[in-house]
Deep mutational scan, measured.
Amino acid sequence: MEVRTIKVFTTVDNINLHTQVVDMSMTYGQQFGPTYLDGADVTKIKPHNSHEGKTFYVLPNDDTLRVEAFEYYHTTDPSFLGRYMSALNHTKKWKYPQVNGLTSIKWADNNCYLATALLTLQQIELKFNPPALQDAYYRARAGEAANFCALILAYCNKTVGELGDVRETMSYLFQHANLDSCKRVLNVVCKTCGQQQTTLKGVEAVMYMGTLSYEQFKKGVQIPCTCGKQATKYLVQQESPFVMMSAPPAQYELKHGTFTCASEYTGNYQCGHYKHITSKETLYCIDGALLTKSSEYKGPITDVFYKENSYTTTIK
Results as ranks from 00 to 15, higher is better:
Glu2Ala: 12
Glu2Tyr: 11
Val3Pro: 14
Arg4Cys: 14
Thr5Ala: 12
Val8Met: 12
Val8Ile: 13
Val8Lys: 07
Thr10Leu: 13
Val12Trp: 00
Val12Cys: 10
Asn14Lys: 08
Asn14Trp: 05
Asn14Arg: 15
Ile15Asn: 14
Ile15Leu: 12
His18Glu: 02
His18Phe: 07
Thr19Leu: 12
Gln20Ile: 09
Gln20Met: 12
Gln20Val: 12
Gln20Gly: 12
Val21Thr: 13
Val22Arg: 04
Asp23Ala: 11
Met24Val: 13
Ser25Ile: 11
Met26Phe: 09
Tyr28Thr: 02
Gly29Asp: 10
Gly29Ala: 05
Gln30Ala: 13
Gln30Thr: 14
Gln31Leu: 14
Gln31Met: 10
Gln31Asn: 13
Gly33Cys: 07
Gly33His: 10
Pro34Lys: 14
Pro34Glu: 15
Pro34His: 12
Tyr36Cys: 02
Gly39Phe: 08
Gly39Leu: 08
Asp41Ala: 13
Asp41Leu: 09
Val42Thr: 08
Val42Ala: 11
Val42Ser: 09
Thr43Cys: 15
Lys44Glu: 15
Ile45Leu: 13
Ile45Phe: 15
Ile45Cys: 15
Lys46Ile: 10
Pro47Arg: 06
Asn49Gln: 13
Ser50Lys: 13
His51Met: 07
Glu52Gly: 10
Lys54Asn: 14
Phe56Gln: 01
Phe56Ala: 05
Phe56Pro: 03
Tyr57Ser: 06
Val58Phe: 00
Leu59Asp: 15
Pro60Met: 09
Asn61Thr: 13
Asp62Pro: 06
Asp62Thr: 11
Asp63Cys: 10
Thr64Val: 12
Leu65Cys: 11
Arg66Tyr: 08
Val67Asn: 15
Val67Phe: 14
Glu68Tyr: 08
Ala69Arg: 07
Ala69Val: 10
Phe70Ser: 11
Phe70Ala: 12
Tyr72His: 13
Tyr73Gln: 10
Thr76Ser: 14
Thr76Asp: 14
Thr76Val: 12
Asp77Trp: 03
Asp77Cys: 11
Pro78Cys: 10
Pro78Leu: 08
Ser79Ile: 07
Ser79Gln: 14
Ser79Tyr: 06
Phe80Ala: 01
Phe80Leu: 05
Leu81Asn: 00
Leu81Ile: 13
Gly82Val: 14
Gly82Glu: 13
Met85Gln: 09
Leu88Asp: 00
Asn89His: 05
His90Arg: 13
Lys92Thr: 07
Lys92Ile: 11
Trp94His: 00
Lys95Asn: 15
Tyr96Thr: 10
Tyr96Asp: 01
Pro97His: 09
Gln98Val: 13
Gln98Lys: 11
Gln98Tyr: 12
Leu102Thr: 00
Leu102Ala: 00
Thr103Leu: 03
Thr103Gly: 00
Thr103Asp: 04
Ile105Glu: 02
Ile105Val: 11
Trp107Ala: 04
Ala108Met: 05
Ala108Arg: 09
Ala108Pro: 05
Asp109Asn: 14
Asp109His: 09
Asn110Met: 06
Asn111Leu: 08
Asn111Tyr: 01
Asn111Gln: 03
Asn111His: 07
Cys112Lys: 03
Cys112Gly: 07
Tyr113Met: 08
Tyr113Glu: 02
Tyr113Gly: 02
Leu114Tyr: 04
Leu114Glu: 06
Ala115His: 04
Thr116Ile: 00
Thr116Gly: 07
Ala117Pro: 07
Ala117Gly: 00
Ala117Trp: 02
Leu118Met: 07
Leu119Asn: 01
Thr120Lys: 08
Gln122Asn: 06
Gln122Arg: 06
Gln122Thr: 04
Gln123Glu: 07
Glu125Lys: 04
Leu126Cys: 08
Phe128Cys: 02
Phe128Arg: 08
Asn129Asp: 08
Pro131Met: 06
Pro131Phe: 04
Ala132Lys: 11
Ala132Val: 01
Leu133Ala: 03
Leu133Glu: 06
Leu133Tyr: 04
Asp135Phe: 06
Asp135Arg: 08
Ala136Trp: 09
Ala136Arg: 05
Tyr137Lys: 03
Tyr137Asn: 08
Tyr138Asp: 15
Arg139Ala: 14
Arg139Glu: 13
Arg139Thr: 11
Ala140Ile: 12
Gly143Lys: 05
Glu144Lys: 13
Ala145Leu: 05
Ala146Val: 03
Phe148Met: 13
Ala150Asn: 09
Ile152Lys: 01
Ile152Gln: 04
Ala154Ile: 05
Tyr155Ala: 07
Tyr155Ser: 00
Val160His: 01
Gly161Gln: 00
Gly161Tyr: 02
Gly161Lys: 00
Glu162Cys: 02
Glu162Met: 05
Leu163Trp: 06
Leu163Thr: 07
Gly164Cys: 04
Asp165Pro: 00
Asp165Ala: 05
Arg167Lys: 09
Glu168Phe: 04
Thr169Trp: 03
Met170Pro: 04
Tyr172Glu: 12
Phe174Tyr: 03
His176Leu: 13
Ala177Arg: 07
Asn178Tyr: 07
Leu179Gln: 04
Leu179Met: 01
Leu179Ser: 08
Asp180Lys: 10
Asp180Phe: 05
Asp180Glu: 13
Ser181Val: 04
Ser181Asn: 12
Cys182Pro: 07
Arg184Thr: 09
Leu186Met: 14
Leu186Gln: 13
Leu186Cys: 08
Asn187His: 02
Asn187Arg: 14
Val188Glu: 07
Val189Cys: 09
Val189Asn: 09
Cys190Leu: 04
Cys193Val: 02
Gly194Arg: 04
Gly194Gln: 02
Gly194Leu: 03
Gln196Tyr: 14
Gln196Leu: 09
Thr198Lys: 12
Thr198Ile: 15
Thr198Leu: 14
Thr199Glu: 09
Thr199Gly: 04
Thr199Val: 11
Leu200Phe: 12
Leu200Gln: 13
Leu200Trp: 00
Lys201Met: 08
Val203Met: 07
Glu204Tyr: 04
Glu204Asn: 08
Ala205Val: 03
Ala205Gly: 02
Val206Ile: 10
Leu212Ala: 05
Ser213Asn: 07
Ser213Thr: 02
Ser213Ala: 01
Tyr214Lys: 02
Tyr214His: 09
Glu215Ser: 07
Glu215Tyr: 06
Glu215Asn: 08
Gln216Leu: 05
Gln216Asn: 07
Gln216Trp: 04
Phe217Ser: 01
Phe217Gly: 01
Lys218Asp: 05
Lys218Val: 03
Lys218Met: 02
Lys219Trp: 07
Lys219Pro: 01
Val221Trp: 03
Ile223Gln: 09
Ile223Arg: 01
Cys227Gln: 01
Gly228Lys: 07
Gln230Met: 15
Ala231Cys: 01
Ala231Pro: 03
Ala231Arg: 06
Thr232Arg: 08
Tyr234Val: 05
Leu235Cys: 06
Leu235Gln: 01
Val236Cys: 05
Gln238Asn: 02
Glu239Trp: 01
Pro241Phe: 00
Val243Met: 03
Val243Gln: 00
Pro248Thr: 02
Pro249Ala: 03
Pro249His: 05
Ala250Met: 13
Gln251Arg: 11
Gln251Pro: 14
Tyr252Asn: 00
Leu254Ser: 01
Leu254Arg: 01
Phe259Gly: 01
Phe259His: 06
Ala262Leu: 05
Ala262Phe: 00
Ser263Tyr: 03
Glu264Ser: 09
Glu264Arg: 06
Tyr265Cys: 08
Thr266Asn: 11
Thr266Asp: 11
Thr266Met: 05
Gly267Leu: 08
Gly267Gln: 08
Cys271Val: 10
Cys271Gln: 13
Gly272Tyr: 10
Gly272Phe: 03
His273Gly: 05
His273Glu: 01
Tyr274Trp: 07
Lys275Tyr: 00
Thr278Asn: 07
Ser279Ala: 04
Ser279Lys: 01
Ser279Asp: 14
Lys280Trp: 05
Glu281Phe: 02
Thr282Phe: 03
Tyr284Arg: 00
Cys285Leu: 11
Cys285Pro: 05
Cys285Ile: 15
Cys285Val: 15
Ile286Met: 07
Ile286Gly: 09
Asp287Ser: 00
Asp287Lys: 01
Asp287Trp: 01
Ala289Asn: 11
Leu291Gly: 11
Leu291Asp: 03
Thr292Ser: 11
Lys293Asn: 10
Ser294Phe: 15
Glu296Ala: 11
Lys298Ile: 15
Lys298Glu: 05
Lys298Ser: 12
Lys298Phe: 10
Gly299Ile: 08
Gly299Cys: 03
Gly299Leu: 01
Pro300Cys: 13
Ile301Asn: 00
Ile301Arg: 07
Thr302Leu: 04
Thr302Trp: 00
Thr302Arg: 03
Val304Asp: 10
Val304Ser: 03
Phe305Thr: 02
Phe305Pro: 03
Tyr306Gln: 09
Lys307Phe: 10
Asn309Phe: 07
Ser310Lys: 06
Thr312Phe: 12
Thr312Cys: 08
Thr312Val: 13
Thr312Ser: 12
Thr313Glu: 06
Thr314Cys: 00
Thr314Ser: 15
Thr314Arg: 15
Ile315Thr: 15
